[in-house]
């Protein structure tokens, strides 16, 4: 049995320790906000936070995060209670197809908690997620905006 704290709640998983966290979240725990894009840590669609650090869950084995605290997009804020980052995302109308956006938001949220006022270069370095719809310009603007709102 593997125990994880997922979005604040302890969950037990009877799975192989080498199952990637992504599939444990999606298929075993039904948390489908975290997306599959490449399976090899190349796109960032599966980004979650493990003990506060942005991680690509498609290559993170559940066995390696036994006992850790995992945070997914479902925990960022709800429609009636959006986080400042999500509000900035809506203000800038960032998502197009939206598929990459859970990963973008989790990466951006981790960036802001570490660096409340990131420069463009900081954003470039932290946000390596792929968006096939090309929403990058708006992602950058929304991160700057959220940083201001938090300040």
């Amino acid at each position: 049995m593997i125990s994880l704290q997922v979005n604040g709640e302890w969950r037990e998983l009877d799975v192989e320790p080498e199952m990637p966290l992504l599939w444990a979240l999606r298929d075993e725990l039904g948390l489908t906000g975290t997306k599959f894009g490449c399976g090899i840590a190349a796109c960032g669609a599966c980004t979650v936070q493990v003990d506060g650090v942005a991680q690509r869950s498609c290559v993170l084995l559940v066995g390696a995060v036994d006992g850790a605290s995992v945070r997914t997009v479902e925990n960022l804020g709800t429609a009636d209670n959006l986080s400042p980052l999500q509000a900035a995302w809506i203000k800038h109308q960032v998502p197009q197809c939206g598929y990459c956006q859970s990963g973008m938001l989790m990466a951006a949220d981790a960036l802001l908690s570490e660096n409340p006022n990131p420069s463009d270069a900081d954003i470039d370095a932290a946000m390596t997620n792929i968006c096939r719809c090309g929403t990058y310009q708006r992602v950058r603007a929304a991160i700057h905006d959220a940083a201001k709102a938090k300040a």
Partner: peptide
Amino acid sequence: QRFDIPAKVTGESMYGIDVK
């Protein structure tokens, strides 16, 4: 503002791959 965006920032938006 687009109708589809709020659900896309909360992870609630259902894509084909998410269905159960």
